[in-house]
Amino acid sequence: MKLCLVVDDSKVIRKVARRILEELNFDIEEAVDGQDALDACDRNMPDVVLLDWNMPVMDGLEFLKAIRSREGVEQPIVVFCTTENDMAHIRTAIEAGANEYIMKPFDREIIEAKFTQVGLM
Results as ranks from 00 to 15, higher is better:
residue 84 E to C: 04
residue 120 L to F: 08
residue 58 M to A: 14
residue 66 A to R: 06
residue 13 I to P: 04
residue 101 Y to H: 03
residue 72 G to L: 04
residue 31 A to R: 15
residue 93 A to K: 01
residue 106 F to T: 15
residue 17 A to M: 03
residue 24 L to V: 01
residue 89 H to S: 08
residue 25 N to H: 03
residue 22 E to A: 00
residue 35 Q to K: 10
residue 9 D to N: 12
residue 93 A to M: 01
residue 6 V to H: 07
residue 89 H to G: 03
residue 18 R to F: 03
residue 56 P to I: 14
residue 67 I to L: 02
residue 46 P to V: 07
residue 95 E to K: 03
residue 23 E to S: 13
residue 90 I to K: 04
residue 23 E to T: 09
residue 71 E to C: 03
residue 30 E to P: 07
residue 73 V to D: 05
residue 69 S to G: 10
residue 10 S to V: 09
residue 87 M to H: 09
residue 14 R to W: 15
residue 4 C to R: 12
residue 113 A to Q: 06
residue 45 M to W: 08
residue 74 E to G: 12
residue 86 D to N: 14
residue 1 M to K: 15
residue 94 I to P: 06
residue 66 A to P: 01
residue 82 T to G: 00
residue 72 G to E: 02
residue 91 R to V: 03
residue 112 E to V: 12
residue 10 S to L: 09
residue 113 A to I: 09
residue 106 F to W: 12
residue 41 C to P: 08
residue 118 V to Y: 07
residue 93 A to E: 00
residue 117 Q to W: 06
residue 42 D to V: 10
residue 6 V to S: 10
residue 33 D to N: 14
residue 21 L to C: 05
residue 100 E to D: 05
residue 29 E to C: 09
residue 74 E to P: 08
residue 100 E to P: 00
residue 37 A to G: 11
residue 24 L to Q: 05
residue 42 D to N: 13
residue 85 N to H: 14
residue 63 F to A: 09
residue 34 G to S: 07
residue 115 F to L: 02
residue 52 D to R: 14
residue 116 T to P: 06
residue 7 V to K: 13
residue 25 N to W: 13
residue 44 N to S: 10
residue 2 K to C: 07
residue 120 L to H: 14
residue 32 V to Q: 13
residue 69 S to W: 10
residue 82 T to C: 03
residue 69 S to T: 01
residue 119 G to D: 04
residue 32 V to I: 13
residue 89 H to Y: 00
residue 6 V to E: 01
residue 35 Q to V: 09
residue 99 N to G: 02
residue 39 D to S: 11
residue 37 A to H: 12
residue 121 M to D: 13
residue 11 K to A: 08
residue 12 V to D: 13
residue 26 F to R: 09
residue 41 C to D: 05
residue 75 Q to Y: 10
residue 99 N to H: 00
residue 97 G to C: 01
residue 88 A to D: 11
residue 64 L to H: 04
residue 49 V to T: 11
residue 119 G to T: 08
residue 117 Q to G: 06
residue 91 R to D: 01
residue 12 V to S: 10
residue 1 M to P: 13
residue 2 K to S: 08
residue 9 D to A: 15
residue 19 R to S: 15
residue 81 C to I: 06
